[in-house]
Design a protein around this nucleic acid. Structure first.
Lengths: 223, 223
DNA sequence: CGCTTAATTGACTTTCCTCAAACCTGGTGG
DNA sequence: CCACCAGGTTTGAGGAAAGTCAATTAAGCG
């Protein structure tokens, strides 16, 4: 993932990235309150991360796909604010943060890369906020599908055909909807010829129409 | 804001933090697309930041209060993904990031502090997601009030009495609601004796009841 | 003091949630 | 190999919540 480093630096970095971890579907990578020690880069599979509110209800905050990073939000508090659970059989690369930090102190390019990762994460969060800001359920789901599609595309996977590894109820929770609504919408999108769904695998047939659903329908201020 | 630094380091840091900027209500601190060069620490006043979606509709992503930081999400892309606008007459401290970065390279404690700020920001975002995850409008608004209250408290301001400097439509946009709904809820909260509202200044009368509104009402899975 | 913009309130409509039932799908055991 | 079971998903009907449209009141500002 890191780019712009010298060969020697990369070699040193590889020492940090040696440790791998395999998880089965449903396994938790870390739990809320676990001490922060590692970052996790997803090599294969996918995860959901969620926080548990003071009142005990769960909120899914992210879906993490191959090539993406998990655990960064634990830095400040020293412990993970939420948990991460594998949505399917997955494997991650374990990155001990203190080692990474030390190395970064010596390698400015890596330093910048770390800032980059942090900032990337922040930007992704603001994308999510944009997504959740869509008032209609339709817009939200469309936006999520596009979001996931583009994230796959970005890492070199197919943008139009992928597996929605999370279950409906997780999508619903994430979008602030109910599983029923999500299910209905998926059916509708399919009837409209926007997507094709086969269980959990999904094909995007009409990205443009989908984008319009995600975008338009919001006759709000153009601030 | 930075803690855990030596006296000498702090002095060097102060050279970085000399520049101030004054803004009137409605002024923009930076616009979407502006190159990333500075971070901004809010000395007084408050800001909203918002992103503009591909379709042109605006989504308010943050409200920034005194003592908080703005602009961090611009790092990765090299430019600001959204704009920031002063909600009232405000003053900020301008922090040139390259200078900060260089200094951090020499001062590990500052380095950690920067990570901390990044991570803090991420954690705050996940709080926001938790907030937006509340399905009822009532719960969302209650959660926002509590969130703002606690952020004021944290910086040493009164937790129970403060100014809601943003206008209703911004709150609505932020929460994924309409201005009318927000207005109705505020009225209702007032009738119920939870808050007192005088234009934009607000007094929290019953934090406990408010917390219950924010928390409960979500008969969801207890994950 | 009048004008403009923001906030509130009301009546009505739409959307989404709730509750409930039926339906797949994958795994287990007879 | 098939029946059965459990969890997840889909679909339907009815109700509650929030949105829309429109009118009124309040608040800022020159």
């Amino acid at each position: 993932m890191p780019v712009g480093l010298g060969d020697e630096d990369i070699e040193r970095l590889e020492q940090v990235t040696r440790k791998k971890k395999i998880l089965k579907a449903g396994d938790t990578l870390f739990r809320a309150g676990d001490p922060f020690s590692n970052l996790y880069a997803i090599r294969s599979g996918s995860f959901k991360s969620a926080v548990i509110g003071a009142d005990g209800d769960t909120q899914v905050t992210h879906f993490a796909l191959p090539g993406e990073l998990l655990g960064l939000d634990a830095y400040s508090g020293g412990s993970h604010p939420g948990y991460a659970e594998a949505l399917e059989d997955s494997s991650v690369c374990v990155l001990p943060f203190t080692q990474l930090e030390n190395l970064a102190q010596q390698v400015p390019a890596l330093q910048k890369q770390i800032y980059n990762i942090f900032s990337e994460e922040l930007k992704q969060d603001s994308d999510v906020l944009l997504l959740l800001g869509k008032r209609s359920a339709e817009g939200r789901l469309a936006a999520l599908l596009i979001n996931i599609s583009s994230r796959y595309a970005r890492r070199g996977y197919s943008a139009s055909e992928f597996k929605l590894s999370m279950q409906r109820i997780d999508i619903a929770n994430y979008l602030g909807l109910t599983a029923e609504t999500v299910s209905r919408l998926i059916s509708r999108f399919q009837k409209q010829g926007l997507i094709r769904v086969q269980g959990r695998s999904i094909t995007i047939l009409d990205l443009i129409a989908l984008s319009e659903l995600a975008g338009t329908h919001c006759s709000y201020e153009n601030g």
